[in-house]
Computed example of a mutant assay.
Amino acid sequence: MTVTATPTPTPTVTVTPTPTPTVTVTPQTVTATPNPTVTVTTAKGGNPTLTSATAVVTQYYEDITDHDYAAAWALGGRNIGGSDYDGWVKGYATTAKIYLGTSSEFGSGQVRAVIYAVQTDGSTKTYEGTYTVSGGLLVSASIRQTG
């Protein structure tokens, strides 16, 4: 008996490797700016009252920087402005932005501040002094220009 075998072809498999993705990590510099939490309570009549003297002074200058003069005036600008509302607002006519540094003892109504007032012409005026806060409002200030 004669057996004839027909060979079956062996399949050829070609594998193309998938490219491995390249991951590039670029280091970043992250600058953290402290953002103090301000506690706000609602006073009789629904007006917010800031509970720390530093928060009051900070909010006062944020309002001025934002050109929300009515809010700054209500926060105590009327007590420390030295003039009527319109005259007080005119005093900030050339102020473009304010940077503020403060220090105080916890629970104290006294806040020591250094104020850097950037003017619309790019120059900076520097002031320093002390604010007194009572009942969530600026009640007095002793500030002088230092530069």
Results as ranks from 00 to 15, higher is better:
Val38Gly: 03
Pro36Lys: 06
Gly91Cys: 02
Tyr69Lys: 03
Lys125Cys: 09
Thr102Lys: 00
Thr33Ser: 11
Tyr92Trp: 11
Pro9Ala: 15
Thr42Gly: 09
Gly76Arg: 03
Gly46Leu: 08
Asp68Ile: 03
Ala113Tyr: 00
Thr29Met: 11
Ala5Gly: 14
Asp63Lys: 07
Thr22Phe: 04
Gly87Leu: 08
Gly109His: 00
Tyr99Ala: 15
Val3Leu: 15
Val111Ile: 07
Gly135Asn: 05
Ser134His: 05
Thr10Gln: 10
Thr4His: 13
Thr51Leu: 07
Leu50Gln: 00
Glu105Gly: 13
Pro34Asn: 08
Gly135Asp: 05
Trp73His: 00
Ser108Ile: 01
Lys44Gln: 14
Thr130Cys: 06
Thr132Glu: 10
Glu128Asp: 15
Gly122Gln: 05
Lys44Arg: 14
Lys125Val: 12
Ser103Met: 13
Thr39Pro: 07
Thr41Asp: 10
Pro9Asn: 13
Asp66Phe: 11
Gly82Phe: 00
Thr54Ile: 11
Val30Pro: 06
Tyr92Gly: 04
Pro21Gly: 01
Gly107Thr: 04
Thr4Asp: 11
Thr8Lys: 13
Glu128Phe: 12
Asp86Met: 10
Ser104Arg: 07
Pro11Glu: 10
Pro36Tyr: 02
Gly77Glu: 00
Tyr127Gly: 02
Thr12Arg: 06
Gly136Glu: 03
Ile115Ala: 01
Pro17Asp: 04
Gly122Tyr: 01
Thr124Asp: 01
Pro9Asp: 15
Pro36Ile: 05
Glu128His: 12
Val30Gln: 08
Asp66Ala: 15
Gly107Met: 01
Lys125Ala: 14
Thr126Cys: 13
Thr33Arg: 10
Gly82Asn: 07
